[in-house]
Simulated assay, not measured.
Amino acid sequence: MEALEYRNGEGCPAAVVGVCDPGLVHIAMTLDTHYLHESMAAVYSLLKHASCSESIFFHFLAVEDPKLELLWRAVAVSFPSLRCWIRHGTTMG
């Protein structure tokens, strides 16, 4: 099932285009196999309850994982209009 597209409410600035636009609200969160449902619930809640949802930009931080592509597809399919970026790296330790 695909999430609805969320649009800015009245009084919001025009949707911005670049990731560095100062009009964006940047939200960083982790993305991994253990907490995928929780991360997607947080994204859904933020988009649903924000009055200017088109001004939200998500930065997903993920460790290198063989299932990372599946995680990313799950997010992309669930939120097709999501403005986001993913950064992946190695585990720390």
Rank of each mutant, 00 (worst) to 15 (best):
S78N: 11
T30W: 11
G18V: 02
L61Q: 10
E64K: 14
I56E: 11
G23F: 04
C12G: 05
C52K: 11
E69C: 07
L71F: 01
D21P: 00
S53Y: 05
V75D: 05
G9K: 01
L61V: 14
M92G: 06
S51E: 05
L47C: 02
L24S: 04
L82S: 12
R83Y: 08
S55V: 04
V63R: 11
F58W: 08
E54N: 08
G93W: 01
S39W: 01
S39M: 10
V19I: 13
G9A: 09
A14D: 12
C20M: 11
G11S: 00
P13E: 11
L46Y: 05
D32L: 04
M29H: 01
G11N: 03
A3C: 06
F79G: 14
H26D: 03
N8L: 15
L61I: 14
M29E: 01
H88N: 08
I86S: 10
A50T: 08
Y44M: 07
E10W: 05
F58S: 05
C12F: 10
A62C: 06
V25Q: 13
S55G: 15
L24D: 02
M1Q: 12
V16E: 07
Y44P: 01
D65N: 13
L82H: 10
A42D: 12
A3E: 09
Y6R: 14
R87E: 04
A50R: 08
R83M: 09
F57S: 02
P13V: 11
T90L: 03
M1A: 14
S53K: 02
E54K: 13
P80C: 02
E64T: 13
P22R: 08
R83Q: 14
P13L: 10
M92I: 08
L47I: 03
I27D: 05
C12M: 10
A41M: 05
P66Q: 09
T90Q: 07
G23D: 14
G9R: 02
C52R: 15
K48P: 01
Y44A: 13
L61T: 06
L36V: 12
L70F: 09
S51Q: 04
A3M: 02
M92Y: 06
A3Y: 03
E54C: 06
T30S: 15
P13R: 12
I86A: 11
M29C: 09
S45A: 04
H59D: 06
V17F: 08
E38Q: 07
K67F: 05
M1H: 13
L47T: 00
M29T: 08
V16N: 02
L31M: 09
H49N: 12
F57M: 03
C20H: 10
V63L: 09
